[in-house]
Design a protein around this nucleic acid. Structure first.
Lengths: 139, 139
DNA sequence: ATAGCTGCAAATGCTTTGCAAGGCC
DNA sequence: GGCCTTGCAAAGCATTTGCAGCTAT
């Protein structure tokens, strides 16, 4: 199993959404999608890339994350003012957010069923439902 | 009904949470709480204060908003990276968020009942549940 | 060849902070 | 008077942008 083989999945993933498989995008896709569901910030991913000896600038991390979001490979989650999380799980699900640790945890159990969603204002349609259950340490 | 009488409610509100009723805080409380439920950003409130000929610096707006949040008079709502909304409705309720207009609308119909909330991770307890239904213009 | 990427550094936008001057009790 | 507040300007962060050089097709 050579080094080239390692990137097959990421390569196909990028092709399928029409993004050029550059060295940076391949490496980031690999970091993001080949270890199960995860939630990362731009800064974190940048750190991981650096640790993996992949040279990528922070600007490229941001560009790439947003391209992945636009392509439907990632979902952006906003839980704190001034910081975005990117979730590799793009399916319909909610989150626990640990307020002091700044940690996101998926809730796969889908609490809010479609049927329960209130009718949106006239002239608009629902684009997404975000449910965040904020938790803190028990005293 | 003199000018002094006008500030009675705001004054009591501030006293009740132990904040000194300064000129700025009184004016902001009046703008925030005397026109029904509203959602404002710091910048917006600053504009309103200026329009009302109340001199307040943006730094004081931020300080005051956070003091009001800590005192339980306001609730902070995070829907966009890099911008905070402050909601005068501190009760249990959810929001529609109009993505292109950046507009928040209360949903008083409480969709997510307590009973439906999944059990939080061990050692933590639920501090709040945020539900944001993102909507966009119908094409 | 060329349209698309990348990276740097500078710019942006919101928010916070340090500290001197001012105001409330 | 003494402590809390305010305001300005500067600093802080996360994120975005402009643009010259590089790269996949």
């Amino acid at each position: 199993m050579g080094q080239t083989r390692t990137y097959t999945r990421a390569l196909e993933q990028l092709r399928s959404v029409g993004l050029r498989p550059t060295r940076q995008r391949l490496a980031l896709a690999k970091l993001l999608f080949e270890q199960g569901d995860r939630h990362v910030t731009a800064e974190q991913l940048h750190g991981e890339a650096t640790d993996a000896l992949v040279k990528v600038s922070l600007a490229t991390i941001y560009n790439t994350l947003h391209q992945f979001v636009d392509a439907g490979l990632l979902r952006e989650v906003v839980v704190e003012p001034g910081r975005s999380y990117f979730d590799t799980n793009t399916g319909d699900h909610h989150h626990f957010f640990h307020e002091s640790q700044g940690d996101l945890i998926d809730i796969n159990d889908n609490v809010l069923e479609r049927a329960n969603i209130p009718t949106p204002p006239d002239g608009t349609r629902v684009s997404r439902v975000d449910v965040v259950i904020r938790v803190r340490d028990e005293e």
